[in-house]
Amino acid sequence: MRGLPAAAPDTGWRARLDLGFAPTPGPQARRTRLVRAEHSGPLQVQRPFYPERDGTCHVVILHPPGGVVGGDRLRLDAALAGDCGALLTTPSAARFYRSAGAAAVQEQTFRVAPGAGLEWLPQETILFEGARVTTTTRIELAGDARCLAWEITCLGRPAAGEGFARGALDQHIELWRDGAPLYLERSRVAGGSEAQAAAWGFGGEAVCATLLATVDAADACDAAREALGDTAGRCAATQCDGLLLLRYRGPSAAEARARFIAVWQALRPAVLGKAAVLPRIWHS
């Protein structure tokens, strides 16, 4: 389709990060360990942090160059063994810069074993004017594995007066359980296209965001809506078949993130059985 990202050629950065999490063996206090952190190229991880009593592992994903350009390809793979708890986040917004033609590609796959809980809570993704981006996030749950995850996408830089009249986004978000799809989303937006202005698309707003939570509690949706407060019609929540879906469409990535954090704090006890503890990096 005209205006959408072409496959990245064999140029630019190639970066891969492969993470593995496993519970501490033996009878001592249970803690989730980062047992594998293999990387190539400019994609790395800080040392694990343990701010919670139950030993949940907090990990910050680092991309030292600070921005992504056309032709770059980033891949993150993370696998959680049974009975693990891991929270993954990023230190700042991901920035995709203007491309001369090739797309930047970002692929993220999370595999979560029975009894484990994944939290994927990155800061926002910002597409600069002229960026061409293909991004895929796939979460594969097994058995009773649980997850809380979000993606926040900003077309252009509204605070700097920059729109997204040129460029393209091809975004995939997938959530699976035991090989069956729970949620499949694909957004294809060409800069300056009808999708940016239409009510069925971005509705003239710069930011679109999705939050997913695996939760069976009947009152989870009401709890999420209460946590959102008055959103002036920018947020909507629904729950079906053990999955809560929250969508945001509005002018501000900071507002989307603040709303999502409030919902995460409200839902974490029902999803993961523990109160929310904010990652240290969010305070810096």
Rank of each mutant, 00 (worst) to 15 (best):
L243F: 02
R280S: 07
A190G: 11
G67K: 06
A197M: 13
A237G: 10
R225C: 14
A232S: 10
G101I: 06
F110P: 03
A198I: 08
E119Y: 05
G250W: 01
S252A: 12
L267S: 09
L74Q: 09
R98N: 15
D54Q: 07
I61W: 00
A213K: 00
A270V: 03
C84K: 07
L155V: 04
P27L: 09
T231W: 11
A198N: 08
A168R: 05
G273N: 12
A276W: 15
E38H: 12
R73L: 13
P158R: 02
R95I: 07
K274G: 03
G250K: 02
S40K: 13
A79R: 14
Q123R: 00
M1P: 04
A209Y: 00
R95F: 02
I126K: 02
L88F: 03
A254C: 09
F110M: 10
R132H: 15
A266D: 05
A160H: 13
A29M: 11
D178S: 02
A206V: 07
I139E: 04
L245T: 13
L155N: 03
A197Y: 07
L74I: 12
H39A: 14
V68Q: 00
P65R: 03
L141G: 05
G192N: 06
P25V: 03
V69G: 01
T125W: 01
Q239F: 06
A6G: 13
L4Y: 13
P279D: 02
A160W: 13
V60C: 11
P279Y: 04
L80Q: 08
G229Q: 09
T238K: 06
V271E: 01
C221G: 11
S193M: 02
A102D: 15
A79W: 02
Y97M: 07
G66A: 11
F21S: 05
R111Y: 02
F96I: 12
V45T: 15
A37R: 15
A131P: 02
I126D: 00
L80P: 00
W176L: 11
S284R: 12
R225G: 09
I126H: 01
A104Y: 00
G82Q: 10
R16T: 13
C84M: 08
L17V: 10
L127M: 09
R31C: 01
L74V: 10
L246G: 01
G20Q: 11
C147W: 00
V207D: 01
G82H: 06
Q239E: 06
G26V: 07
T24N: 10
F110C: 06
L17F: 07
A206P: 06
D144C: 04
R95K: 14
G20R: 08
A236V: 03
I173A: 07
A218S: 09
V112M: 00
F260L: 11
P114H: 06
A8P: 15
D219N: 10
L74D: 12
G26Y: 06
H172K: 10
V68T: 08
L244C: 09
D178N: 08
A258N: 07
G67T: 12
P279C: 03
F164S: 04
R98F: 15
P9D: 11
A145Q: 12
P51C: 02
R259P: 00
G192Q: 05
G41W: 12
W282S: 04
